[in-house]
């Protein structure tokens, strides 16, 4: 299938906040309690439509444990978007956000779009972080914000698609250079079939005037 852009995402956050479940819900539309620490579901991809374009998202799930923190830091540089996840039922995962953000700022491409995700919103009776607090933290740090439930799929697609929209907006305004490989963005292509890259390019061309007319 052809696409205009390929975006690389990473999912970060404390251990046990539901990063793997979010990814599985997004790519496979299923919820599975993976009891163990992240294993097996480490990479997933899905095609979405954002800003009127077909966009392919490739998402890497990272390990949340402290012992893997340095490895996780290796991913920041090459990602176009990051989902920074906390668990609304566990206050400490919210409190750790600044440390994660610090990591991002230190290692990531400064154009990386960060979406703050408050997961497990379905467990309302045990909520420890209010929606307003999440919103406020996001506003203060210039992040996008959404609350999700990987279990019920609530807000999950939105989290990924809205991030893609923000990345595309940066491309359209020229803030983000698609030709720079470390931006985490690639122009669409299909190496197997001749002509599909043309289609992709056509898509881009057709889409771009629309986008510019919007602006």
């Amino acid at each position: 299938m052809s696409y205009a852009y390929l975006l690389k995402y990473i999912i970060i956050g404390d251990t046990g906040v539901g990063k793997s479940c979010l990814l599985l819900q997004f790519t496979d539309q299923r919820f599975q309690l993976v009891h163990d620490l992240t294993i097996g579901v480490e990479f997933g991809s899905r095609m979405v439509t954002a800003g009127g374009k077909q966009v392919k998202l490739q998402i890497w799930d990272t390990a949340g444990q402290e012992s893997f923190r340095s490895i996780t830091r290796s991913y920041y540089r090459g990602a176009a978007g990051a989902l920074l996840v906390y668990d609304v039922t566990r206050r400490e995962t919210f409190d750790n956000l600044s440390s994660w953000l610090q990591d991002c700022r230190a290692n990531a491409n400064h154009n990386m779009v960060i979406m703050l995700v408050g997961n497990k919103s379905d467990v309302s009776h045990r909520r420890a972080v209010s929606t307003e607090e999440g919103e406020m933290f996001a506003r203060e740090n210039g992040l996008l914000f959404v609350e999700t439930s990987a279990k019920s799929a609530f807000g999950v697609d939105d989290a990924f698609v809205a991030t893609a929209g923000a990345v595309l907006a940066k491309i359209d305004t020229g803030v983000l250079d698609v030709k720079n490989e470390s931006s985490g963005v690639k122009l669409g292509y299909d190496p197997g079939r001749k002509g599909t890259s043309d289609v992709a390019r056509l898509d881009v061309r057709r889409a771009e005037p629309g986008a510019s007319s919007c602006c």
Binding site: V41, F43, P191, G192
Partner: peptide, 16 residues
């Protein structure tokens, strides 16, 4: 490494 294999396949390298 199943996840790298998925990436390999998705990015069209299997065919090469």
């Amino acid at each position: 490494n199943p996840s790298n294999q998925t990436l390999f396949r998705e990015n069209g390298f299997v065919r090469s």
